[in-house]
Nucleic acid binder design. Structure first.
Lengths: 225, 225
DNA sequence: TCTTATGTAATAGTAAAACTATTATATTTG
DNA sequence: CAAATATAATAGTTTTACTATTACATAAGA
């Protein structure tokens, strides 16, 4: 998979960036180190100025690639979900059993990233941590409807719809396939957050993972045999 | 219920504010109009300066009550969950049937607020909208562990634990009562957000409410007869 | 009633963040 | 090799978030 991924360019909606960060060495450094710095400082305390110092480049040069730090977050989020979608398609396409396929899919969207591909400048382990902590901030804004119309969230929505389709494949009569799919995906991230910060309101810890919880939830709800 | 509520002071952890906004007319105006203004502008664009203009008071006076806009959000969040907790206790305490009680509880935490109590300076309908859009931002910060230690989230956690206890009452052997409770509460807010902004990834619309979805999910998962 | 204490709010800031206009330096290409 | 273009740096501005200090108002005690 890693070899395949290195030859595959993850496609992000064009309007998100001013200049494609994949198109230059500086652009790649911006992506690489923004992930590390957002992880260290949190998105709120992260600034282009601080990033500039780290990559030995000027703040204003970064504005040549992204018009705001919010757009940069949208880019990272889109990249992440495109990468999840890739795994979803790749790792489930040859599973013929519907139930097995759905279980695999839930595991993919809920699991913690444990290996960095080492082929790109993007550290997927750290990016996964950022998504857990910051993904909601990409859409919890006053501009969400405009940005949605501009297509900034299509990849994220497509992942949810793929999961929804697998739910329907298992239970054509179930009334809430879209809501269940979106609950699994946001809930998966949320349970990871709780296990790191609010242990008293989650059961996830050690062997009990968000994946296991949501697989159990789905199998029972859909009454899969 | 409304009459009772008007005589009942919603208790918020003391360390959240510098000076109790309930203790003065200005404090109440700050709360009243911050809710309306955050709803209009979104939390990110909301500033103490803009609030000051609206309440005809100076920006710095607001700092006498809250040391930052983040602390104000924590206050509003705590107030909201205390108010939900009140409804949870009041509306379920005389229901003896465990299943019926749990269903009522899920409805309370997931339903849309439709009536303003009109007894306090707080507009609960608008506050409910703010919580849907902004609640996550109260804990998705780099300071979450410190603030959690300082008790800023106890009311929120207590509501989840009350729901968890009702789940255990119904299914003592279920393995994930805390995760299910936290999923219902965060998921309920999220499904409301989706119905307002991302209709393609939710089934909630019109008659199909987040409450119905999560009641169905819980009854099926726990296999309640 | 006068003085002191205290609560409340306004003035006038500062520091940092977010973003922009302009200029300089590479690099490409015809 | 000159013109065009891509790329990046300098040096700003504006806005936000927050603070230090002063002023005013009310209340309490002697």
């Amino acid at each position: 998979m890693h070899n395949l991924l290195s030859n595959l360019k993850i496609a992000v909606p064009e309007k998100i960036f001013v200049k494609d960060p994949e198109s230059s060495a500086l652009g790649k450094r911006i992506i690489e180190h923004s992930i590390l710095l957002i992880n260290d400082l949190g998105f709120d305390a992260f600034t282009f100025k601080k990033l500039g110092v780290i990559i030995g480049s000027n703040e204003s040069s970064i504005y040549r690639y992204f018009e705001s730090k919010h757009k940069l977050l949208l880019y990272l989020s889109s990249w992440y979900w495109a990468w999840i979608e890739y795994q979803l398609v790749f790792e489930t396409h040859n599973i013929s059993d519907h139930k097995e396929k759905l279980i695999k899919a839930i595991d993919i969207v809920c699991r913690t990233t444990k290996e960095d591909s080492n082929f790109s400048h993007i550290n997927e382990i750290v990016l996964n941590r950022i998504i857990i902590n910051e993904n909601s901030k990409s859409f919890l804004t006053n501009e969400v409807d405009k940005e949605n119309k501009d297509g900034y969230f299509i990849i994220y929505k497509r992942v949810i719809q793929r999961l929804r389709d697998m739910i329907i494949e298992n239970s054509p009569d179930y009334n809430f396939p879209s809501s269940l799919a979106s609950t699994i995906i946001e809930g998966g991230l949320h349970q990871h957050f709780l296990k790191d910060h609010f242990l008293s309101i989650t059961d996830c810890e050690g062997q009990i993972t968000p994946s296991r919880f949501f697989i159990d939830l789905t199998v029972n709800t859909l009454n899969l045999k």
